[in-house]
Amino acid sequence: MVDEKKLQDAVKKTVSRDDVKYVVGYEKGTYGFQVTPSFAYDPKDADKFIFSPLCVYNLAVFPMLEEKPPLRKDQEPDTRKIGVVVKGCDARAIVQILQEKGLNREDVVIIGIPCTGVVDPKKLQAQFPENGKNMDIKTGKDNFIITIDEKTHTIAQDKLLDEKCKHCEYPTPILYDILIGDEIKATKKEDYKEIEDLEKKSMKEKWEYWEKQFERCIRCYACRNACPLCYCKECMVDQLSPQWVRRSVNLSENTAWNLLRAFHLAGRCIGCGQCERSCPMDIPLMQLNKKIEKEIKELFDYIAGIDPEEKPLLAMFKPDDPEEFIL
């Protein structure tokens, strides 16, 4: 498990630097198992930083949310860096943003944490619905040790582990400035089993399945706002002329939105699952993202968020790209 003292020291050292604006990490939430993002503008803020299996959220979104207001004539722009505490998967989001030149490498300080897997808050909530004050969870050898008011429960990892962690191929951040602890070797492999099961269904079954899912969508766009890679200045759904997606909530518009969202992340989604986690209607958005990820791997032999120097998938081509039609 990650040494929190080391993490706090690293954060303190980073915040004390003159060229760093703040560091974003995790702190304990108000009640229950909650964990919330925490901002350290001062070295003493770093004392509340934690890292536990509850830290499932992707913080790579914060450097992208940074507002850049227009400057006065002789005002200097704020070029200070932002520190981010990242897990293996979150680091891939940063790599992908760097690849698209959404950020420059010198804009961020990456504090990497080798991660052995985090829990799915929804699964945890289902097993332990109580909302106490003294609740904690730790990773054991192959289980999670949960303490609720001094009572200890142990539970197998498989039962609580987040979906993304079950097939995690990059537990150690690919890119980091400071690494807390030692690197971890990947032992799991992505097998796309769930996606293949869905592919086997007939057209009619698929339509019924997705109709049921998309009917529930309320188009709150939480999936977009939570996603570290949805950072367009103006999203296509907010555009009024031309208005690509109308504001009415009906199956046709919902399907269009979900399809477009998934397509805009084609070759960019790094599978952190933040969209699905933030969805208030529990729509399985990751199934769409994973489906594209799988196709891209098969068709173009490309994995998103691995190499910051590579060109984005849809902005390049290879002469030997497969073609489905005859010339």
């Binding site: 698929k206 339509w207 397509f263 489906k291 594209i292 068709l299 849809l314």
Partner: peptide, 13 residues
Amino acid sequence: RIMLLKKLLDELA
């Protein structure tokens, strides 16, 4: 792009 779009359309029936 179109190749990917077609795969996605198939997924959504």
